Computed example of a mutant assay.
Amino acid sequence: MRANRKLWATAAICLTVVAGATGCGKGDDKPADPFAGLSADAIADKAVEATKNVTALRVKGGFAEDGETVTIDMAVDDKNNCKGSMENPKGGKAEIIGTGGAAYMKGDDAFWKSTMGGEDSSAEETGAISTLLKGRWMKAPAGEEGPAAFCDLKSITKDMDEDTPRKGLTREADADVDGTPAAVLKGKPEKNGETPTFYVAKDSAKPYILRVVTTGGDEPGTVELSDFDKPVDATAPPADQVMDMEALMKAGAGS
């Protein structure tokens, strides 16, 4: 499963957003409900349409995978720029920068040791690669796998659109997400036991998904979206601080 699809599918960032407008209600100070008369499913349709057309967004949160929590904080725009970080549940943290058709990852020692270690890797090989990358950035080519996958906004939103069921939702009591009024849409429990709940901005012009909470199942988690349409300022690291992936693999193989 592609990294971007995993992000959206497991975090259940697939169901909901709202079309909202603010105004004064008659006889009170509460703004009129921008979703009055709309079913939860109809709100979800508007939400997905609005969110998939943004030119940039930031994804922050964590989701469980194989009983461990993966944490990300990544901003990405439609120019294939991205910038952020991720934490490996097995240990360590890495920064990620994407620009100019390539992605760069810089992890701490714990991150590289936990990431590079595998069934076919010896402790010596893992340690050698970790030492080689200490204080340096690993460069990966553009593609659908690895860190570069986080930099493809079009692919990410396309997966969100395709993976989002829009039937059988229920609107719950409204809530607040970091100061923004939000409509809350709850999905039906899925076959794997997961139940997604979506928080949608009550804004007719920008009915974006603000938060997705997944409970139950094997992969619960919470993800928040923000910084919509905000360009990402990403600059490639200095060449003398970069280790090309191909060269790295040759070094790891003892070439």
Rank of each mutant, 00 (worst) to 15 (best):
K90Q: 14
V59Q: 12
E65G: 11
E144Y: 06
S39I: 02
G146S: 11
I72V: 14
I96L: 06
K83H: 11
D41N: 10
F150T: 09
T126S: 04
C151P: 04
V48P: 06
D28N: 15
A142H: 10
D73H: 00
E95L: 08
D108R: 00
A94N: 05
G67L: 04
L57T: 03
T126H: 01
G143T: 05
A110S: 14
I96F: 01
G37S: 04
G37I: 02
A36H: 12
P89V: 07
L57R: 01
V54Q: 01
K134M: 02
S130N: 11
C24V: 15
D45Y: 07
F63Q: 14
A42M: 06
V59E: 12
E95Y: 01
G25F: 02
G25I: 07
V59L: 12
E87S: 15
T55R: 07
K26T: 14
D28W: 05
D108G: 02
A148M: 08
W112S: 02
A32D: 13
G62Q: 13
A36C: 09
A64T: 15
A50D: 14
G92N: 06
T99V: 13
C24Y: 11
L38I: 08
P147A: 08
P89W: 02
K52A: 09
C82P: 00
M116P: 10
L153Q: 01
K139W: 04
A42I: 06
E119K: 12
L57G: 00
N81G: 02
K134V: 05
A32C: 12
K134Q: 11
G100K: 04
Y104W: 05
N53M: 05
Y104E: 02
R58E: 09
P34Q: 03
T69M: 12
G27I: 08
E144K: 12
K46S: 12
E125Q: 14
G61A: 03
A140P: 06
M105P: 00
A50I: 09
A40E: 03
K106S: 10
R136P: 10
A149P: 09
D77N: 04
V76Q: 05
A140M: 12
T51P: 03
F63M: 12
D29K: 13
A75I: 05
E144W: 06
E124S: 11
N53S: 13
L38F: 10
I43A: 15
V54K: 00
G25H: 09
A44E: 08
T71F: 00
G91Y: 07
F150K: 00
K106M: 07
E68A: 14
R58F: 05
T22W: 09
G92S: 07
G67Q: 03
G146V: 05
G100I: 00
R136D: 11
G118W: 06
L133G: 03
D73C: 00
I96G: 02
S130T: 15
S130D: 14
K30R: 13
K113A: 13
G135A: 07
A47T: 12
C82N: 01
A64F: 09
W112T: 04
A148F: 03
G135Q: 06
L133P: 06
K79N: 09
T126V: 14
K26W: 13
W137T: 01
G107Y: 01
F35T: 15
P141I: 03
D66V: 08
T115Y: 12
A75L: 05
G118Q: 11
E144C: 04
T99S: 10
N88I: 01
D45N: 12
S114P: 08
M105L: 13
G101A: 04
G107N: 07
A56R: 07
A32Q: 13
A140K: 11
S121P: 00
E68M: 12
